[in-house]
């Protein structure tokens, strides 16, 4: 009797463990028309990060669109490269789908030796594209980007610019601004955007370039937009193009499958993704999360990702960071 009850307790514990691991389990695939089985969205970032939250916002609707279960698997570590490497190794059957931000596919391959490259993947489509904005605190001595550039020319290496880590978009923005304007900003990397914004508000760094929605959220002033056109919310803030530099940058999240995945599977995924990004509930969630949905065709996204890849190589090469 006692033993029996004991075993029940054990079983209950295991049931709890199994339940908790449901979201991480690997699916077994059948050979029928795609998709006939659970699709795993592999996120190369930890649960709760920006990419993960975006993936979870599309997860239920994407499952409806595909007519199958969609689960999320987080494989984090080494700036997203561990999970991305796993996605590159996955069977090219469309059941393991990489959802990632730019870093692991378009930037990290230039910075270190990796078992994959952008060419290891077949692009599926873009989830979101959020414009970038160079921001300063409200009490900053710089009211325009021209003032900032002039001050930086007078005091080379003295004005501090934060980033969310080496090889992140905010870091690339510093490198691009340095190169374009012929200035030298002092770069201090922090672990993630939140840490960088904290130091911006606390006065440790003078400027930080990140998604434009952070500006109203933290009551920051925008100095420079990195989008192709001026931002609707900041009609007075010049773009890089206005300053005469042909540079465009934005935070994006995209979907990839391993290179050898059949074309029709990529097409099916692209269609389901784009329908998901038109769903009113998803649009509302994206608006709340300050993400701008940005559906593309496979070809558009392919060209976009490649251009991004080349741009970051150029920036990092000039900064002497390419390995």
């Amino acid at each position: 009797m006692k033993i029996h009850r004991m075993l029940c307790a054990t079983r209950r514990e295991f049931a709890a463990a199994t339940l908790a691991f449901g979201a991480l389990a690997m699916p077994l695939h059948a050979q029928d028309a795609y998709p006939s089985d659970t699709v795993t969205l592999l996120i190369p970032w930890a649960a709760g990060g920006a990419t993960d939250v975006a993936a979870r916002a599309i997860q239920p609707t994407l499952a409806e669109q595909l007519g199958t279960d969609v689960i999320i698997k987080n494989v984090s570590g080494a700036a997203g490269t561990i999970g991305t490497a796993e996605a590159a190794r996955a069977r090219p059957d469309g059941y393991t789908v990489l959802v990632t931000s730019a870093g692991p596919v378009a930037v990290q391959p230039h910075l270190r030796k990796l078992p994959y490259d952008l060419d290891s993947f077949k692009p599926v489509g873009r989830v979101s594209l959020t414009p970038m904005l160079t921001m300063v605190p409200q009490d900053s001595p710089y009211n325009t980007i021209e003032e900032l550039i002039a001050a930086a020319k007078e005091n080379p290496g003295q004005i501090t610019a934060g980033s969310s880590g080496a090889g992140t978009l905010p870091h690339l923005a510093i490198l691009a601004l340095n190169k374009a304007a012929g200035i030298e900003l002092k770069h201090i990397p922090f672990q993630g955007s939140n840490a960088a914004i904290k130091e911006l508000l606390g006065g440790t760094v003078a400027l930080f370039s990140d998604q434009s929605q952070s500006a109203p959220k933290y009551e920051l002033n925008g100095l420079l937009a990195w989008s192709g056109e001026r931002l609707e919310e900041y009609p007075d803030v010049p773009t890089m193009k206005d300053l005469g530099y042909d540079i465009e940058m934005g935070n994006w999240i995209g979907v990839f499958v391993p290179l050898d995945t059949p074309e029709e599977i990529a097409t099916a995924l692209n269609e389901a993704l784009n329908n998901t990004l038109n769903d009113p509930e998803v649009l509302q969630n994206f608006a709340d999360l300050l993400l701008a949905p940005s559906p593309t065709s496979i070809e558009e996204f392919d060209a976009f990702a490649r251009a991004n890849y080349e741009f970051s190589r150029e920036m990092l090469q000039d900064a002497g960071l390419v390995q």
Partner: peptide, 9 residues
């Protein structure tokens, strides 16, 4: 692992 400042391994 990765150097927090430069990303070098």
């Amino acid at each position: 692992g990765a150097d927090p400042m430069t990303g070098a391994i």
